[in-house]
Design a protein around this nucleic acid. Structure first.
Length: 323
DNA sequence: TGCCCATGGTAAT
DNA sequence: TTACCCTGGGCAG
């Protein structure tokens, strides 16, 4: 379920707390026992996210590839700090990406949690942080496919769609099939690749935004929200969407992804007043323009929001503003 | 308390 | 095309 922003945040957790220290790799559940044996005792030298895929490189040249799918999750425990994640994200993004103007305010209101030294952090579609009073390392909870353990931190993976050991070549092949990711690729190049891919396909733009070979990291929430923000009809074939609109969709994705990585939440109604922002954070029902709002009045024109299944996923849109 | 659904990609059919 | 992964939040009762 996590869209691109959470996978980037998870990769940052590994970068901050797991790199350059030998990792005991095990599979408490048993289903990844063979893979765990191939990685056990090696150091993680690099962690990276591309779209919804995450890759951990070990010091003997093998990688762990993980895709969380619809209910996968990582549980971190030990000497873990959320503020460090945010700070790291800030440094990374500041190098190559422009940031939303009100991002600093958002961070101030969402990331000011003072993390105790021993904490437990669940990272999936939502993030849950709590003090951890159990002994270290804690007992695995549920069906843990992989456990990565260092002297000070532990990460448990549950319910992933994909979890496998890969060679360099295999990792390259996976990444080569993926569309541009604003936090990985050059923004101008990414915009050209995305625009060219969309404008040569007869497929509905709503399907193209979810196609990970066209653009990386967008899921069902961001798809619906990006289309509303662009006031774009979801069913228009890619090749018929105005070029300026396609480029604006890419730039808006860059903006929303940066906000998502900085805050850990899919905030798609930026530009709100301070009180509206607080309300949007507190209640999921007030968080989006159209996603999951079937039959409720459009926030702009009052028309009931429409829902229809498209490509096996639910699509939400305003039939008037996105006519 | 129990049922249903979900922010997906993969492998089997 | 369908089953799987096998969790957690929301909600009906």
């Amino acid at each position: 379920m996590p869209e691109g922003h959470s996978v980037h945040r998870i990769a940052l957790q590994f970068e901050r707390h797991f790199e350059h220290s030998p990792v005991a790799v095990s599979s408490p559940q048993g289903r990844f026992a063979a893979g765990a044996a191939q990685l056990d005792g090696h150091e993680i030298v690099q962690s990276k996210a591309v779209g919804k895929q995450m890759f951990l490189e070990f010091d003997h040249g093998l990688w762990l590839r993980v895709h969380l799918g619809i209910y996968g999750a990582w549980d971190f425990a030990g000497d873990i700090s959320v503020d460090a994640t945010t700070a790291s994200a800030r440094g990374r993004m500041g190098q190559t990406n422009q940031r939303g103007t009100d991002l600093a305010d958002l961070e101030a209101s969402t990331s000011s949690i003072g993390a105790p030294r021993l904490t437990r952090l669940r990272m999936s579609e939502q993030e849950k942080l709590e003090p951890d009073v159990s002994r270290f390392p804690p007992e695995p909870i549920g069906a843990v496919r992989v456990r990565l353990l260092t002297p000070t931190a532990v990460a448990d993976l549950r319910g992933p769609t994909a979890c496998e050991v890969q060679t360099n070549e295999q990792v390259d092949a996976v990444i080569a099939k993926l569309g541009p990711d604003p936090l990985v690729d050059d923004l101008a190049e990414g915009e050209e690749r995305f625009t060219a891919a969309v404008r040569r396909k007869p497929t509905a733009i709503a399907l193209l935004l979810m196609d990970q070979s066209v653009v990386s990291g967008i899921g069902n929430v961001y798809r619906a929200e990006l289309l509303f923000r662009a006031r774009q009809n979801p069913f228009t074939p890619g090749k018929e969407v105005r070029e300026e609109v396609v480029r604006d969709l890419w730039r808006d994705w860059v903006k929303l992804l940066n906000i998502g990585v900085a805050t850990g939440q899919m905030l798609t109604m930026d530009g709100l007043s301070a009180s509206e922002q607080t309300k949007a954070m507190a209640s999921r029902a007030d968080r989006h323009w159209v996603y999951h709002r079937t039959g409720e009045p459009c926030r702009v024109c009052g028309t009931p929001i429409q829902m229809q299944e498209l490509g096996g996923r639910k699509l939400y849109w305003c039939p008037v503003d996105q006519a």
